[in-house]
Structure formats: structure tokens, C-alpha cells
Amino acid sequence: MNINRIDIKILVDLYKSVDGLFPYTFFQRYEYSPVTVFNSVVKYSEYIESVDGKLYISEKGKEFIEKNRFTYNKDRFDRIPAEFKVPKLEINTPYLPNLKKVSKNILLLQDKDDG
């Protein structure tokens, strides 16, 4: 059973919601059809509970989301696990960039003395 992009969206949205979500909400947000939402709910019935027509994440589901680090907010850099992060640099702190990874555009600009 492979998890797909849609499953993750539904699970993460439910994880983030305080008071559960109606299936229709996924149509409003992403235009997921009734069958699309239903399939994910059935596939992950261990992690999603249906009560009175509303969907909630289960305790097992919360654990699953946290363990797999599916939650992130603004951009993909928010997904970097804590153990790979170094202490944040203060503004204007000098550091040595890895030249191989610096974009060529920046290097070229510096050649022209306007960088």
C-alpha cells in the first residue's frame, strides 16, 4: 500500500485541523472528488476516523504523521529534520560558502565588480 500525494494532503490537513474536517472541505480546497476522498479514508481507516459525517485524525494517525515528518508549513526547507540543522547564523556573520554550490550567476556578477 503506497501512500500518495493525495493521501498525505488529507492526512496532514486532518492532523492540523483542531476539530476535524468535512469530506467536502477537500473538494473546496483541492477539488478532490467524493471517490478520491473516500478512497484515502478507506485506505487509511486506521488513521482517519469518521464521526457523524466528519473526518478526524486518530491517535495512531498523529503518530504516523509525526514519525514520517509529513508536516511542514511554508516551504520544503521546513521539512529538514532537526538533526541535520546547524545553529542559525546572525545577520552579517561572515561565513565561507561552498563555491561548488554557489550559483554561477552570482560568481559572474562578482567578476564584473557589481556583486
Binding site: P23, Y24, F27, E31, S33, P34, V35, F38, G53
Partner: peptide, 24 residues
């Protein structure tokens, strides 16, 4: 078809599916 779906219609489909899973 999806564009024209309102909440009532969505819910009718959604409620039908557990009883009639062959329609999936």
C-alpha cells in the same frame, strides 16, 4: 462535472460509496 458540484451533491455521492463500494 466537478466544477458544478455543490456541497449537497458531494455529500450524496460520499454517503453512497460506503454502501455501494462497487461504484468506486
Amino acid at each position: 462535472i466537478l466544477r458544478l458540484m455543490d456541497r449537497k451533491l458531494f455529500d450524496r455521492y460520499y454517503k453512497l460509496l460506503p454502501k455501494q463500494s462497487w461504484l468506486v
